[in-house]
């Protein structure tokens, strides 16, 4: 089920922040992860995702950096902290060819995510109380196994 634009406007950034809270991710990875994790409900095209990333970046919730794409990236990304931190460049400096732009959550972004999560929980509780939403809230631990890195390109 596709979410209406207004709801998406509020949910999309939180979804992105939540995904980046687990580990650093690049654009395509985020699109795929959101589509998979939400069963397409919050699926968004690049025309929506990238402007959203730029806005989050402008607000200081995330920051982008270029990093060379290697086969080892995926495994290291799974550990949250990127392995090639020294080789990283800021989003404004020169990346190498075949680089990907990764995004990571900033401290400000983490705080925002915590605030937004509380608000969403309150909204869902309110909706449940009204009978609009009937599903139980998942426990935080239930979300972790699903955040697997995408296979790397050959």
């Amino acid at each position: 089920m596709k979410i209406e634009r207004e709801l998406m406007r509020g949910a999309g950034p939180v979804a992105v922040l939540k995904l980046l809270n687990r580990r650093d991710m690049y654009g395509y990875e985020l699109v795929e992860a959101i589509t998979q994790r939400t069963e397409g409900a919050l699926a968004m095209g690049q025309s929506t995702l990238y402007p959203m990333l730029y806005n989050l970046e402008a607000q200081g919730f995330i920051e982008g950096y270029w990093q060379e794409a290697t086969d080892a990236d995926a495994a290291k990304n799974a550990d949250r902290a990127p392995a090639k931190r020294d080789a990283q460049t800021s989003s404004k400096s020169k990346p190498a060819s075949r680089d990907r732009k990764y995004y990571r959550l900033t401290d400000k972004g983490k705080k925002r995510l915590a605030d937004d999560s509380k608000q969403w929980e309150a909204v869902i509780r309110a909706m449940k109380a009204l009978g609009v939403a009937t599903l139980a809230l998942p426990r935080p631990s239930e979300t972790e196994p699903c955040l697997r890195p995408l296979p790397q390109p050959q």
């Binding site: 654009g27 395509y28 990238y50 794409a69 404004k92 990346p95 680089d99 732009k101 390109p153």
Partner: peptide, 17 residues
């Protein structure tokens, strides 16, 4: 240049998948 590179990387990733 940044956007071009990012979108190109995106499409490369898509093609690779």
């Amino acid at each position: 240049a940044d956007v071009e590179a990012e979108l190109a990387a995106h499409f490369h990733d898509g093609l690779a998948q």
